[in-house]
């Protein structure tokens, strides 16, 4: 039922046209935000969308670096999706990286050990899934900049990890959805880390505040850049979309600038 109510974000991501195969399958999605406007809500939307889509095989592996499960559980419950129940069904795996992981402390100063074991954990989880779920896995990372902090600044280790995860997308058709903060890198001279990540990305979502400041009924604007969208019939050339949004407890309103009365 909820799939019928398409919003602009779903359309821009191509989620409306087919649910099988899952349109984001094999894609890497990067969400960027800044201090003024948080992009977390896009992550919540995609999480809900993935878990409540028509195909019952979709599985989510969530690597939480910034918030505990209780936070996400409350938000997603308001969106109409029970994470605890999904976890019991074996469709949602929550890896709490807040406390569990400080790789450099565990494995000396390398930082790599932690991420490697994390990767193995992900792969074990995928291997343990039933056969027809294996190709419908979504890996979500809720804050990539905190991964860098966990790796003690060695962004190469984070990049390695991302490359490993990227192989999963090409081998098994997993999708990878990550959130990062854009404004951290804008002041750097050569943001090699960010450029490398962007090279992997198929879909790019950017949340920004309005140029005129915050307003009560427009919380910011989203720019969606979809590189892999061309093959879908119909609106094929429409690769960049830009619209405003307003975040509510149980939904997010998307609208084109100036179309709200």
């Amino acid at each position: 039922m909820e799939n019928r109510a398409l919003n602009l974000l779903d359309e821009a991501l191509g989620l409306g046209y087919q649910t099988d195969p899952w349109p984001l399958r094999g894609k890497v999605v990067l969400i960027e935000d800044c201090v003024e406007t948080s992009g977390c809500f896009v992550l919540h939307q995609l999480l809900k969308r993935t878990l409540s889509s028509q195909s019952p095989n979709n599985t989510v592996i969530f690597l939480a670096f910034s918030h505990p499960l209780s936070h996400y559980d409350r938000i997603l419950r308001k969106l109409g999706c029970n994470l605890v129940a999904q976890r019991e069904n074996g469709r949602f795996f929550f890896f709490d990286m807040l406390k569990l992981l400080c790789p450099d402390e565990k494995e000396g100063r390398t930082g790599k050990g932690g991420f490697i074991s994390l990767y193995w954990k992900i792969q074990d989880t995928i291997c343990a899934l039933p056969e027809n779920n294996k190709n419908h896995v979504t890996i979500m990372i809720d804050d990539m900049s905190l991964m860098e902090v966990a790796a003690h600044g060695s962004s190469d280790h984070v990049l390695d990890f991302m490359h490993y995860c990227h192989t999963l997308t090409s081998e098994l058709g997993c999708s990878l959805i990550t959130l990062n903060h854009e404004d951290i890198y804008t002041s750097m001279e050569r943001p090699a880390f960010m450029l490398q990540i962007k090279y992997l990305v198929d879909v790019f979502i950017k949340a920004e505040p309005l140029a005129t400041g915050l307003a009560a009924d427009v919380h910011g604007q989203l720019t969606v850049l979809n590189w892999g969208f061309c093959n879908v019939k119909g609106s094929s050339n429409n690769k960049i979309t830009n619209f405003h949004f307003k975040v509510k407890e149980n939904s997010v309103e998307y609208f084109y600038p100036g179309t709200r009365t």
Binding site: T37, S38, H44, R74, I75, A215, H219, E249
Partner: peptide, 9 residues
């Protein structure tokens, strides 16, 4: 913004 996604404006 703990336990919610709505920003307080």
């Amino acid at each position: 913004r703990i336990n919610t996604q709505v920003p307080m404006i």
